[in-house]
């Protein structure tokens, strides 16, 4: 079954980092920017603007996030089973209660999509793996992922990958690729 996912079109990204800031806000305890930045354990963004370089040598922003691979190498590497597929269908979601911060998942992720931070959902641990969860909480409320909502240029879209291909966009770019087994 196909799931809606965040489709990335890096050629449209201007590097404003709104997605990152709104992502962190959406994963904060209070969900409001004005209060989120005062929380004792700060939420962290799960999308990152990486710096790429075009053939002319010009720096280009690249919105980088989890692709929710299936099968997911991070999940195969996760020893305590903290990366779960049963929290939100079609999404690989880190369960902070199970994560031991060992680092194996990030070793397995080809996309630099997993980072480690002190996490407000597991405040007793020094670090926890933090990655995109497809905003499943927001989706349950009928909202689209926070990064997509924040994106002004269309570099992030929320939709079905196959429809996106049909649209002729052709460049799934680093969109929602799955790792080939």
């Amino acid at each position: 079954m196909q799931h809606k996912t965040v489709i990335v079109r890096p050629e449209l990204c201007v590097g404003c980092m709104q997605c990152a800031i709104r992502c962190a806000q959406a994963h904060s305890a209070t969900k409001e920017l004005a209060t989120a930045v005062f929380e004792p354990v700060l939420a962290k963004p799960r999308i990152h603007i990486g710096v790429g370089v075009n053939p002319q040598g010009v720096l280009k922003p690249f919105p980088n996030k989890c692709r929710h691979c299936d099968p997911a190498p991070c999940q195969e590497a996760c020893m305590p089973g903290a990366i779960r597929s049963d929290i939100a269908e079609g999404s690989k979601v880190v369960d902070p209660a199970l994560c031991i911060g060992c680092g194996m998942c990030a070793m397995a992720c080809p996309y630099y999509a997993i980072r480690y931070h002190h996490d407000l959902h597991a405040p007793e641990r020094t670090i926890t793996a933090i990655k995109c969860d497809n905003c499943h909480d927001r989706q349950k409320k009928g909202q689209i992922p926070a990064c997509v909502e924040a994106c002004k240029t269309g570099a992030l879209e929320f939709g079905y990958v196959n429809e996106h291909i049909k649209k002729g966009a052709g460049r799934l770019a680093n969109a929602a690729w799955s790792m080939q087994s």
Partner: peptide, 29 residues
């Protein structure tokens, strides 16, 4: 909407062109 979160918080600076710069309010950047 949504507006620029950095600007909402006053964390963007365009005062020179070594920048423009932004400070990450969530501390990872």
């Amino acid at each position: 909407q949504p507006h620029c979160g950095f600007c909402e918080l006053g964390l963007s600076c365009r005062n020179c062109i070594m920048g423009p710069c932004r400070i990450d309010p969530f501390g990872s950047g």
